[in-house]
């Protein structure tokens, strides 16, 4: 999977023994993430989602390919740009949209919001809004697995911007030293917030070019190709489960929208977005499946099914009550309350 130069999305078609079912699963996941994020964006415009939101439009192949390679019990650690990674693990759309909308049916009943999606039952161990903070946390979960002899792997997703924060380097060194079963997935979407990552980084590949510093293989892949992501992840998981230690995978991708709700992304050079849209992961994947003989009707049916799911979820969220006031003071401490004194 290691590639020395920037790959061109969609040009190479890795087969790698991916089953037709697995391919349909990844297609379905990408369509789900695409439609759910577009719906989140629409709901923002309608002012039904408040606060902020960081969408993964254009980056679906990373979340889908990674999730498709994970087993139940594997743990995901996400960033504030975490809707896609949360949904990809099977968390219902209604729970995610409900959380974004501050409804009582939300994943955390509105106490976390867009940037903190967590669903332990799906292995989503949190979305972290402080850049880089969750890399050491993922190491800790992996350390537990190693110590207890558990077979789960922790997967930590983060952006290119996180590679310049200290916690990234502390976590990589700690994980490599102790051969922890953790997979670090850097989604390089070319921009750290509003600034091109290349303008503020000493190396060309913010993830891949740092791997050698921690004795790890340099892995830079096409993050817009779910098959490439999937196959790379499978290999990294096998390595982790075999006790051979962590992997650092840099996935080259691009976000179609701005950094957050407030960002129109006017800093991007003209034509860049259009060029990347030609490498849109969902379109690439659909074309590939059709080339391989999957009937368009089959794919259309998946699209329609997802559309229904998103519509139903949206309606359920619009009908759900606002979060109730009785949870304002709950779950600060393990006794269920917030009292800090007798």
């Amino acid at each position: 999977m290691t590639q020395k130069t920037r790959p061109t999305a969609g040009e190479t078609v890795p087969t790698g023994g991916i089953s037709p079912d697995k391919r349909l699963e990844m297609y379905r996941l990408q369509v789900l993430l695409r439609q759910a994020e577009q719906r989140a964006y629409d709901l923002f415009l309608e002012n039904k989602i408040k606060g902020t939101s960081h969408l993964s439009l254009g980056q679906e192949a990373v979340a889908a390919g990674a999730a498709a390679a994970m087993r139940p019990g594997d743990l995901s650690f996400c960033t504030y740009r975490g809707h896609a990674h949360t949904l990809a693990r099977g968390v219902p759309v209604e729970k995610v949209l409900g959380e974004l909308m501050g409804r009582d049916n939300g994943l955390m009943r509105g106490k976390g919001g867009s940037m903190h999606l967590t669903s332990v039952e799906h292995g989503v161990m949190g979305s972290y809004a402080i850049v880089g903070a969750h890399l050491p946390i993922a190491c800790g979960a992996a350390w537990r697995a190693q110590y207890k002899g558990d077979s789960d792997v922790s997967v930590c997703f983060f952006g290119d911007g996180a590679t310049n924060i200290g916690a990234f380097h502390e976590a990589l060194n700690f994980a490599a030293c102790r051969k922890l079963p953790v997979v670090f997935v850097c989604e390089n979407n070319l921009y750290m917030e509003y600034t091109p990552i290349a303008d503020v980084t000493a190396v060309k590949h913010p993830g891949g070019d740092r791997a050698g510093a921690y004795g790890l293989e340099r892995i830079v892949i096409d993050g817009n190709d779910a098959d490439v992501v999937y196959l790379t992840m499978v290999k990294a998981f096998a390595r982790a489960r075999a006790g051979e230690g962590p992997s650092l995978i840099e996935c080259l991708t691009y976000r179609h929208s701005g950094h957050s709700r407030a960002d129109p992304a006017k800093y991007r050079p003209p034509g860049e977005l259009d060029r990347w849209k030609e490498r849109d992961p969902v379109s690439i994947y659909r074309r590939r499946l059709e080339t391989q003989g999957v009937a368009a009707e089959t794919l259309d049916a998946i699209d329609a099914e997802i559309h229904r799911i998103i519509d139903d979820a949206t309606k359920a969220c619009e009908a759900a009550p606002s979060t109730s006031a009785d949870i304002l003071f709950t779950d600060v401490y393990a006794d269920g309350g917030c009292s800090w004194r007798n």
Binding site: L75, F77, M125, G126, A133, H134, L135, P136, I137, A138, C139, G140, A141, A142, W143, R144, A145, Y147, S154, G166, A167, E170, A171, N173, F174
Partner: peptide, 13 residues
Amino acid sequence: QAILGAAMGAAMT
């Protein structure tokens, strides 16, 4: 950061 982060991830799990 690795010390406290790792402690947290271990504690969470």
